[in-house]
Design a protein around this nucleic acid. Structure first.
Length: 227
DNA sequence: GCGACAG
DNA sequence: ATCTTGTCGC
């Protein structure tokens, strides 16, 4: 399979991109962006890493909330079917993430995904994509912007600034730690921006990344070194 | 037409 | 994501 990384490789098949775009538009019509009515007791975090060029390892961690104590960690390794294309990340990583999710003994009330939720060209980032498939509340925490403009939030922890795209606030740029680059928090599915922002802040104890994402990141690396 | 572009 | 060295700060 030929890979597309920025401008190094041949551009992806426009026919396939048109089909995937249409699929995202259909999924978008099912997204629900409202304050979740759950009793948050278990929160999950997930992340993927790659083994070579055609294998992907996805990890899920399960934490108690608000104590944030680790109660479970699982992973799954599978084949990579698509190259990375900005705007279509979910089609590359979600299939394997879903298989890892199925291995959890207990299921979370909310899933925090590494990447964007609705702060996406078609409002269907990987967090939203996963929420639609799992039919459960999700939110996205990304390290870099994908679309939209924003003013840099103040340098102190807790400062926020809205991310605007097409005259709409699609995420909050949140400073989770003093003098450290902010993260982009957006609702995924069965979620609203305010709640997602509050939870992200509550999970940012002493690191830039909120605990669910940070631990998923950590264990993905640990599992990878064991495989 | 020229950049920008999650992981 | 991944490839990579030294370096600054808590």
């Amino acid at each position: 399979m030929a890979y597309y990384r920025r401008f190094d490789y041949p551009a992806p098949d426009p026919i396939i991109l048109a089909r995937l775009t249409e699929q995202q538009r259909e999924m978008q019509s099912r997204v629900i962006l409202q304050k979740p009515d759950f009793d948050l007791k278990l929160i999950a975090g997930c992340d993927s890493s790659f083994i070579g060029e055609d294998q992907i390892l996805s990890a899920f961690v399960l934490l108690t909330y608000p104590a944030l104590e680790l109660v479970e960690k699982v992973y799954h390794v599978g084949a990579v079917e698509l190259p990375y294309i900005p705007g279509f990340l979910a089609f590359r990583e979600a299939p394997n993430l879903l298989k890892a999710y199925e291995k959890l003994q207990q299921k979370p009330d909310l899933i925090m995904v590494d990447g964007h939720g609705i702060s996406h060209p078609r409002r269907l980032g990987i967090a939203t994509h996963l929420g639609i498939h799992i039919n459960k509340p999700t939110m996205g925490v990304a390290k870099k912007v994908l679309v939209g403009k924003y003013k840099e939030p103040a340098t102190s922890k807790g400062s926020i600034s809205p991310l605007i795209y097409k005259d709409e606030i699609i995420a909050n740029v949140l400073r989770t730690k003093d003098n450290v680059k902010p993260v982009f928090v957006s609702p995924g599915h069965f979620m609203d921006l305010e709640t997602a922002t509050t939870i992200a802040m509550a999970c940012a104890i002493k690191h830039k990344l909120p605990e669910p994402t940070r631990l998923a990141d950590h264990y993905a690396a640990v599992f990878k070194s064991e495989v």
